[in-house]
Design a binder for these strands. Structure first.
Lengths: 100, 100
DNA sequence: GTTTGTATCTTGTCTCGCAAGGTATAGTCA
DNA sequence: TGACTATACCTTGCGAGACAAGATACAAAC
């Protein structure tokens, strides 16, 4: 899931609940708050994201997360891993014999 | 990893170490004995595979695993999940802006 | 007779996903 | 007013999974 969050953040900052909703919209990536908030902490500890509070008069205070340069590199590296991995799985599945 | 083992078994019975080697050959699926043997137990408990010992004079005794009908159904169901999931991740990754 | 290769399996650790619960604030509505 | 709903944050605790490391056994090779 981590890389998916990094991917979303690559197009601009988001806050926690927003990420939950967007991951949900992508479909089959149904995440929950219990997944996303601890994950954001881990990504922060790893130096992949930074965060800042945004407070205004009309909305609830929101903590926004944004991608760091290190996070961008991590995302790139994941992209390569994903191509190899998904390719391997897909080719493995392709060898399954059809129902008789 | 479980579905990958089921996929391999769909073309015929294998024994433990053989699965480790074949998964290793596929690449980017580098598994280890500590992964595969407990996994085979779980797949067995779930009813997805059965096992039998094969003993002969020249080789070490080997425990072969083979796919059950339930396992075949599980594999089919995974195939659909995989298409949705990998499609979602791939499309997410496609939205990443290029390096400036 | 010690090392190497093949085969089995267990143990212990670390990480991750997630359901469930907890806090706070502001708006709606009966 | 007082209850309910929505939005936002976060923590806790369970269960599952991956895997490194180690334990056992036997046979062939050197």
């Amino acid at each position: 899931m981590g890389p998916c969050i990094l991917a979303l953040l690559s197009t601009g900052p988001r806050f926690g609940l927003q990420l939950v909703r967007e991951l949900d919209d992508v479909g089959q990536l149904l995440s929950s708050q219990g997944t996303v908030y601890p994950l954001l902490n881990r990504l922060h500890d790893a130096g992949f994201v930074t965060s800042y509070w945004e407070v205004n008069d009309t909305d609830r205070p929101r903590r926004y997360y944004q991608l760091t340069e290190v996070g961008r590199q991590e995302l790139e590296s994941f992209q390569e891993d994903w191509e190899r991995f998904s390719g391997s799985v897909t080719s493995l599945l392709a060898t399954i014999p059809q129902k008789h």
